[in-house]
Design a protein around this nucleic acid. Structure first.
Lengths: 213, 213
DNA sequence: ACCTGAACACCGTTCAAGT
DNA sequence: ACCTGAACACCGTTCAAGT
């Protein structure tokens, strides 16, 4: 009969998908749950932590997806020695982006929660683990994962915002295909950079064992 | 005696620096100008376009700075053939980041305005011009400049947010030096990627003349 | 334990009316 | 031309009081 935290978070994701972040208000959320706004504060401490929970919910789907099909990637080729690194990063990036795109304003929600560090799921930590497998130092993992996360979040936020402005008729053209292409090609710049670290021996794959993740 | 648009925008930047984006409200801004909130709507159509004007004000300082000292950069070395490209990108990126850091929440303000496209100054267009000088195709310039802008904005936003959370005592440690290092090294990943395009002939410096900027 | 009612201190925006 | 007064339709958050 009575609500719990999970109900509130799931309803919040629902409001997000239907009305967007701007209209995700405590009052509207309460209304959808058949309750008064004040009641929500029994389940969550405030709106910011609710958004962090929503962010976790969005990112959780990334983990779930990668657990279901751990090696399914048609774009995998495999000839250079560093193709494992490159493919690992590409796969993670694609899944991260897909998880964000699955929900309206997903990029903005996750981005707003990231620096606060309230979320249980940290996307930067996830790529960090990938980089660790290829011998990257802790400093390299930190700035490398940050660069990747910032690029992806920034790209998705711009894509989602522009797509919504397009639906509102505010902005003329929006090409989803071009967005995906820009994303893939932009990502490749970072992949090249990371591969460079690996190639010049700055990151040493032979030291993988003693890498503290 | 009476206000004009410039007064309103400059006061808005002032409120931003002193109280942050969250407290940059029409009412507070009006109060600072000795006027009622409704009066502001004579000078700006709404808050969103006011933020776009604030964003322009912030980015304008980038242009001014580069015009004052066009070649002053102590980190410049100059030995490889592509060092011009790399240095050009590094210099622009450093100035862009510096302009954002000069104002509280500068990153967030510019980022929120960017996809709307209301701003007069487009940072992506500025690097695009740099890339054009080195023969990058229009597609390469687009995804390259987007990747750079997203990386820089994302990095600065996280840096500024964390720095403020630190001041509020919410988060324990904040190291400005480490932030700058992560920025420089992260940027280098993208620079390497761009240099790669230039090296493998995908971007052709000999075609610089007919590049439509 | 969970929720209501009602308030507090705000928002952005509009617009007749004043000067 | 520029601004006030006053309203409209909202916000997030708190908290005594109810069940």
């Amino acid at each position: 009969m009575s609500l719990n935290r999970q109900d509130v978070v799931r309803a919040a994701v629902d409001v997000l998908d239907r009305y967007g972040l701007e209209d995700l208000t405590m009052r509207r959320l309460a209304g959808l749950l058949g309750v008064k706004a004040g009641a929500l504060y029994w389940h969550v401490t405030n709106k910011q932590t609710l958004l962090a929970l929503v962010s976790d919910e969005i990112l959780q789907e990334l983990d779930d997806a990668s657990r279901l099909r751990p090696d399914a990637d048609p774009t995998a080729v495999g000839s250079q020695p560093d193709t494992g690194l490159a493919e690992g990063v590409r796969r993670w990036a694609g899944q991260f982006r897909a998880a964000l795109l699955r929900h309206r304003d997903g990029g903005e929600v996750v981005a707003s929660t990231l620096p606060v560090g309230l979320g249980r799921v940290d996307p930067a930590a996830e790529v960090s683990a990938v980089l660790a497998r290829y011998g990257f130092s802790s400093h390299q993992r930190r700035y490398g994962s940050r660069a990747l996360v910032h690029f992806i979040l920034g790209h998705v936020i711009e894509e989602q915002t522009r797509s919504q402005l397009h639906e509102l008729g505010v902005v003329a053209q929006f090409d989803g295909r071009a967005e995906e292409e820009d994303f893939t090609d932009g990502l490749e710049l970072l992949v090249t950079g990371l591969r460079g670290l690996s190639a010049d021996g700055t990151a040493d794959p032979s030291r993988v064992e003693n890498a503290e993740i």
